[in-house]
Nucleic acid binder design. Structure first.
Lengths: 137, 137
DNA sequence: TCAATTTCTTGACTGAGTCCAAATCTCGCT
DNA sequence: AGCGAGATTTGGACTCAGTCAAGAAATTGA
């Protein structure tokens, strides 16, 4: 697992304590929303502004160091597992999210039957259901 | 195409002018967000409160008369095409949304490889890309 | 080391949606 | 048709996630 500092350099981004801390925070908290990331960062470096958190998360997602997931009905979440086309399983009751590998192998597992002239760059899959804990209730 | 009034009755819901108008508004405006639905309803019956629009949309979605789609980065949208497991293609630039049929036929086209104990009830697929108009720019 | 540029901070602001209590309407019964 | 109970709608305040903008601070490259 590469050092945050090195990752930022490789992408040609300025290396700041905030960005490194955000990267580490997401690593420690997979599928965390922005406010949880902010808190985790504060635990590490003291303070960070809300804006810096949003800026970092957006930039890092754009550059491919993070992946942003935006399930219906909840705030955006982030993870460091990028570039492997995996999908997510979300609990309708508690919002818990877990990774699932693509059912059909490693390659992008979907192609639209009729693309209507669109230039498609991603097929996003979200499975909705209830997690084991919530089923008990 | 069934009458809104009849549809509501069949589901055991109270028949109100607001609900009928919301149903018709979504029919006329596929993939419209709540505020557009509200405006369309106002054009038909004069006034409706924001709350009644949200309540109706939620209730109708719950009862299977509407389908709610919540693409990342935009407000929830609604459509009357329900029960056929089709998916959506969304333009990253302008947000335009079009229907796509499932690539693998009519049956639910996905099963998670490992469901982690979840009780899965829906597999949602969103294709991201750029629409023909936005490609020109 | 220093200037130029990028990034971060602060605080106001927006948009989508929710909460709540009071007013109104719908439905089923007589 | 009229009535009452319960469901629905209204209006307004409020929350939450995220954005905007301007000045302060940090990073980078020379």
């Amino acid at each position: 697992m590469r050092e945050p500092q090195q990752l930022l350099r490789e992408k040609g981004l300025a290396v700041t304590v905030q960005r490194m801390a955000v990267l580490r925070a997401v690593r420690r908290n997979p599928h965390a929303p922005a406010d949880v990331v902010a808190e985790a960062v504060r635990g590490e470096i003291g303070t960070i502004s809300k804006q810096a958190v949003y800026d970092s998360l957006s930039l890092l997602s754009e550059k491919g160091l993070l992946r942003r997931i935006q399930p219906a009905g909840s705030a955006a979440r982030y993870e460091t597992r990028v570039g492997d086309n995996h999908h997510h399983l979300v609990c309708r009751d508690c919002g818990k999210m877990v990774d699932v590998d693509c059912a059909l192998g490693e390659t992008p597992c979907l192609h639209a039957a009729d693309d209507a002239g669109f230039e498609i760059d991603e097929a996003e899959v979200v499975y909705w259901g209830r997690c084991p804990d919530c089923q008990k209730e």
